[in-house]
């Protein structure tokens, strides 16, 4: 019932005010067209606490930051070159925005391109879908965390594993 209410609220929000969020909340759209392949738990049952989205194609789609707001993005390149199936833990390319409330929104695993640099923008491209870092295939890992803990409420009720998403699809709301 609680999830149902959330979904109805999300739908109404998407209808009435697609980009006008409340004072401290931001709608998050999918960074590229694909499928949600993992949410809070992996198929193995271990905790993931984030969204994995994959189109199944490497270096094909540009990865956009997804958050519907002008924000300053810090892009960290740890791996240059086209990698689709992993380069080892801790070597993922990352785009992140640290919010004043101590929470951080992150996108991982993209391939470095000429768009991979720090800047202030609204849903801009920061790289291409790929598999840098700890990955077994091309995807983007979308994470919202605070003090080392991954938050899951921001996407719960907005998307589920297996859902096909495109760039107009709301995958969560962060606040």
């Amino acid at each position: 019932m609680r999830h149902m209410k959330k979904k109805v609220f999300a739908a109404v929000l998407a209808l009435a005010v697609p980009s006008v969020a409340a004072a401290y909340s931001y709608t998050v759209k999918s960074p590229f067209p694909g499928t949600v392949t993992a949410t809070t738990y992996y198929s193995s049952g271990s905790f993931h606490g984030a969204l994995d989205i994959s189109s199944g194609r490497c270096n094909y789609w540009g990865v956009e930051t997804g958050v519907m707001a002008s924000l300053s993005w810090n892009v960290t390149i740890r791996t240059s070159g086209v990698y689709c199936n992993g380069t080892g833990s801790g070597t993922q390319n990352e785009a992140k925005h640290a919010f004043a409330n101590g929470r951080t929104f992150r996108l991982w695993h993209f391939i470095k391109t000429s768009d991979s640099y720090d800047r202030t923008c609204n849903r801009c491209q920061v790289g291409n879908e790929g598999g840098t870092g700890n990955a077994t295939g091309p995807h983007v890992h979308v994470q919202y965390d605070q003090s080392g803990s991954n938050l899951t409420g921001w996407y719960s009720g907005y998307t589920t594993k297996g859902e096909a998403v495109d760039r107009s699809e709301t995958i969560g709301v962060i606040e």
């Binding site: 401290y24 707001a69 002008s70 300053s72 640290a98 004043a100």
Partner: peptide, 12 residues
């Protein structure tokens, strides 16, 4: 400064 940069951008 508060919402775009969250206080983390010196030039702002």
């Amino acid at each position: 400064n508060a919402h775009v940069y969250s206080g983390y951008h010196g030039p702002a």
